[in-house]
Simulated scan of single mutants.
Amino acid sequence: MKPIPREESSVKADRPLLLTQGDAAGIGPEVIAQAWARVPEPAAVVVGDPQVMRRALAQCRLQRPVQVLETISEPRLPGAMAVWAPPGLPATLLQGSQGLVRADCGLAAARCIEAAVGAIQSGAARGLVTAPVHKEALHAAGVPFPGHTEMLQHLAGVPAVRMMLVNDELRVALVTVHVSLRKALDLIDGPTILETVRQVHAMLVGPLGIAAPRIAVAGLNPHAGEGGLFGDEEVTTIGPAVQQAQSEGLQVHGPYAPDTVFMRARRGEFDAVVAMTHDHGLIPIKYLGLDAGVNLTLGLPFVRTSPDHGTAFDRVGRGTADPSSFLAAWQLGQRLTISAG
């Protein structure tokens, strides 16, 4: 992973990239600490609990002072980790054990996300990189969203968002995300597929700067249904959505067999793949490794990226967290927010 370069614009640096701490009982604070130590002069602010971040620095054996900010816009001290604690964080985050599902940690993660989005919407910050949250902890805290994507959609007030995972070899967007497979089948329809394709195209030609992107749409059934022999969704639903996207001038092709389309994209035939379900799309990209994978949310009015891994409860507290994926998310978030001005 290439190091994140220093900011060239003091104006942009004054509007920091926000890094939310994620679940305090998970690996998020440690990957932030490890990543922060590798970034020269970070134009960023951690949204989280200062004591949690001090613990993470100590666990990672990093000598770094923590500057507690009163506001996002407060001048940041060179060499210090800038941390802004939003209102409403539980006072119990250091009292319980790490590596466990805890309602207070779920609540704190949600408060940090809400505050970060509010800061971006007010113009005080320019984008968001989120450390992992734990869905069970969010649920235990009474948060009415299964994860980041759905919460961010609600906070941003947009009708639809999509998840795209990217690394150096693949870009994969999902039509359905955090629902059971049985429910996902009911959610796959023409308008939803078409909206996903449109959002992928907008991201590719806009922030990612690909002039004429080629998008492949994966089928749902084995061999893309074999003309209806193994299921007819490709004929009745996916194919017509592809045709509608083509009529809008988009370079969209498919539906293709899910077991080969990712290989074709990896070889350069396509710039992105649209997959129908969560595991259809994420197994191939995660198989290539979690160290460089980045989750990029489509459809938001601001940039949001995150690492391609979870809270890693089984590894927390050792100080050996690999920050590669978080660094990749940070790097992409910085590049996209700078290119957007």
Rank of each mutant, 00 (worst) to 15 (best):
A275C: 14
Q67W: 04
G48M: 03
Q95L: 13
R111D: 02
L17I: 12
Q95H: 10
R64I: 01
T71I: 09
R315T: 10
V68I: 14
P144C: 11
K2V: 12
P40G: 03
A218Y: 04
P255Q: 05
P50E: 03
V161D: 14
R214S: 01
T320M: 13
P40H: 04
A82Q: 02
P207N: 15
A141K: 08
A35I: 02
A211F: 12
F326Q: 01
R38C: 04
T130H: 05
A184F: 10
V143P: 08
V11D: 14
S97R: 15
G281T: 05
Q331L: 13
D14E: 15
L187K: 12
L282P: 03
P323N: 10
L332R: 08
V161K: 12
G231P: 05
G219E: 05
G48C: 05
A265Q: 09
P87N: 08
I120T: 00
L208K: 12
R264K: 06
F302T: 10
Y287P: 02
A216I: 00
R315G: 10
P40K: 05
P16W: 07
A33M: 13
P78I: 13
L19E: 04
L77H: 11
H148P: 02
D291R: 11
L170M: 01
G254S: 09
P255Y: 06
G239F: 07
A56D: 00
L57V: 06
T236P: 07
L229T: 10
L107E: 15
A44R: 02
H148W: 08
M203Y: 09
L93F: 04
V83W: 15
L336V: 13
T192S: 15
A202Q: 11
E41C: 11
E74R: 02
P86F: 09
V46L: 08
R267W: 07
A58V: 06
E169W: 15
G96P: 12
C105H: 10
A328C: 04
M151V: 05
L155D: 06
R264L: 04
L18Q: 07
A13I: 09
L94K: 09
W330Y: 14
G254E: 06
I27R: 07
D104K: 01
L77S: 13
G310W: 04
S9E: 12
E150R: 01
I188V: 03
V235G: 14
E233C: 11
R267P: 12
L170Y: 04
V31S: 11
T149Q: 00
T237K: 04
G341T: 01
L290I: 11
F270N: 09
L77A: 08
A329I: 13
S339G: 12
Q199P: 03
Q334T: 14
T192E: 11
A212N: 14
L77M: 06
L290C: 15
Q67R: 05
A108K: 15
A241V: 00
G317L: 08
Q199Y: 06
D271L: 06
K183A: 14
A13E: 09
D168N: 15
A272S: 15
A80P: 12
A119C: 04
A137R: 00
A131H: 00
R266C: 13
L93Y: 01
D322K: 13
F270A: 11
R54H: 01
S122T: 14
